[in-house]
C-alpha cells in the first residue's frame, strides 16, 4: 500500500503538474494527438464505410482490415515510423499511427451497422418512393447509429491507449510520465502516470456512452 500512498503524494504535488514534462502538459499532448487522430480517422473511415454499406459492396475489405488491425502491433508501427524522416515531424508519427489503428474499428462497425439494417425496411422505404439519398439519411443511417457509436467508442479507446504507447518511442503524452518513472526507478511516478492514463481512457469511454444515450436517433421511439 506504500506505493499507492506515494503515488497519491506524487499526484498531489503541484510541481509534478507544471512545466514541459509536467502532468498538465502531458495530458494536453495526449488529448491533442488523440482528438486530431480520432477526427481524421472518422473523416476517412466513416464516408467510405457508409458508402460501401449503402451500396452493399466491399464486405471482405471491412472484415480483413479489422483482422489486420488486431494482428499488427502498435508498438512496432510507432517504432518503424520513428526510424523514418517522420521522426523529426513533431507529433505527426504518433498521429498517423493513431489514425491507422482507429480506422479498422470505425470502418468495420459502420459497415456492419449499414449492412444489418433490416432489408425489409429498406425495401419498404424504396417502395414508398424514397431516393437513394433519402433512404441513406432517413432510414439506413439512423438504424446503423448504434453500431456506428460502438465503433467510435472502440476507436476512441484504442486511440487513447495507442497514444500512451507512443511514449515508448519517445513521443509525448501521459505515457511519458510512466516511461520517465521507469528510467529513474521511480515506481510511485510510474503508478501515478498509469492512474492518469487509465482515468483518461475511462473518462473518454464514459463520455461517449453518455453521448450515445443523449444523441441516439431512436431515443424518442424507445
Amino acid at each position: 500500500m506504500g506505493v499507492v500512498a506515494d503515488a497519491w503524494t506524487w499526484l498531489t504535488t503541484g510541481s509534478n503538474w507544471s512545466g514541459e514534462s509536467g502532468a498538465w502538459h502531458r495530458l494536453g499532448e495526449h488529448v491533442y494527438v488523440s482528438g486530431i487522430a480520432l477526427a481524421l480517422a472518422c473523416a476517412i473511415a466513416l464516408p467510405v464505410a457508409l458508402w460501401l454499406g449503402h451500396l452493399g459492396k466491399g464486405g471482405a475489405l471491412a472484415v480483413n482490415i479489422s483482422n489486420a488491425g488486431r494482428a499488427i502491433p502498435v508498438f512496432a508501427v510507432l517504432a518503424l515510423f520513428m526510424l523514418t524522416p517522420l521522426r523529426s515531424a513533431g507529433y505527426l508519427p504518433t498521429i498517423i499511427a493513431l489514425v491507422l489503428f482507429a480506422v479498422p474499428p470505425l470502418l468495420t462497425n459502420a459497415y456492419v451497422g449499414m449492412r444489418e439494417v433490416d432489408r425489409a425496411v429498406v425495401e419498404a422505404a424504396r417502395g414508398m418512393g424514397m431516393s437513394g439519398g433519402q433512404l441513406f439519411f432517413r432510414v439506413e443511417l439512423p438504424l446503423a447509429y448504434p453500431l456506428l457509436m460502438t465503433g467510435l467508442r472502440s476507436a476512441a479507446v484504442q486511440v487513447v491507449a495507442t497514444a500512451t504507447i507512443a511514449s515508448m518511442v519517445g513521443q509525448g503524452g501521459l505515457g511519458r510520465i510512466i516511461t520517465a518513472g521507469f528510467n529513474t526507478y521511480n515506481t510511485p511516478q510510474v503508478v501515478a502516470g498509469a492512474l492518469l492514463a487509465a482515468l483518461l481512457a475511462l473518462l473518454v469511454e464514459g463520455a461517449l456512452v453518455a453521448a450515445d444515450r443523449l444523441l441516439s436517433p431512436l431515443r424518442k421511439t424507445v
Binding site: V190, L195, A201, L202
Partner: peptide, 17 residues
C-alpha cells in the same frame, strides 16, 4: 470491459508494484 478500456502501458505499470 472496464479492464479492456485501460491502456496496456498503464495496465502493465499498475502491476509493477
Amino acid at each position: 470491459t472496464l479492464l479492456y478500456t485501460i491502456p496496456s502501458l498503464a495496465m502493465f505499470s499498475l502491476l509493477l508494484p
